[in-house]
């Protein structure tokens, strides 16, 4: 296994974080992050669909004709979403009441189709599964962080953070913070590389 590619794929969830960097899948992020439980539930449901759709699309990548690839991907994704929906209805009815509205919408979550098109359709099964896991967990973590911040603010008495407006503003501020930290990280790496001779740049 190529070590560099492995590391890059595994770190994809952080360095190419779906929410904060790629800005994909915003709707469930804002809609379902009023508390940590909902955020975790929806994040894990999305991660499950992402891993399995990535694996199946990667397995079928030589079978699916190029012209009908998008409809085929959507059907694969919709199948797994339906499975998640059935699972929640049967085993976690209370969570289903809270996040059920957003479960069918996982089908049109741009992260999943985006990873299918950009990664799973071009890579082997192992990497596709790893990418799905990394991206899925990256998405879940962002949702939980956002949910945690909003929950604290709501508990502190800022009722506005319960509404969509609060979601938009919290996410905007967190994204700016993430950009700021990522900027510092990139600058420090650049400085380190320059100290070591600078050829690697």
């Amino acid at each position: 296994m190529d070590m560099k590619k492995f590391k890059e794929t595994a770190l994809g969830g952080v360095l190419n974080n779906p929410v904060f960097v790629l800005v994909l899948g915003m709707c469930p992020t804002i809609g379902m992050s009023t508390n940590v439980t909902n955020a975790l539930g929806l994040g894990l449901a999305t991660a499950f669909v992402l891993v399995f759709s990535n694996v199946f699309i990667s397995l079928l990548r030589r079978v699916i004709p190029d012209k009908v690839r998008l409809p085929s991907y959507i059907i694969i994704i919709a199948t797994f979403v339906t499975l998640v929906k059935m699972f929640l209805e049967k085993f976690l009815p209370s969570l289903n009441v809270a996040i059920g509205r957003f479960i069918p919408l996982i089908v049109v979550n741009c992260i999943i189709l985006g990873r299918a098109e950009a990664f799973a359709s071009k890579n082997s099964v192992g990497y596709a599964a790893l990418d799905g896991l990394s991206m899925g967990l990256g998405f879940t973590c962002s949702l939980v962080i956002l949910g945690g911040v909003r929950m604290l603010l709501i508990m502190a008495g800022f009722e506005v953070f319960k509404t969509a407006a609060g979601g938009f503003i919290t996410l905007g501020l967190l994204m700016a913070l993430f950009n700021y930290l990522l900027g510092i990280y990139r600058n420090s790496r650049k400085a380190k590389l320059l100290l070591n001779g600078g050829d690697a740049l």
């Binding site: 609060g166 979601g167 938009f168 503003i169 905007g172 501020l173 994204m175 700016a176």
Partner: peptide
């Protein structure tokens, strides 16, 4: 994106 999100919030 961050500023666009904050505008959307307002």
């Amino acid at each position: 994106f961050p500023i666009a999100l904050i505008i959307a919030g307002i």
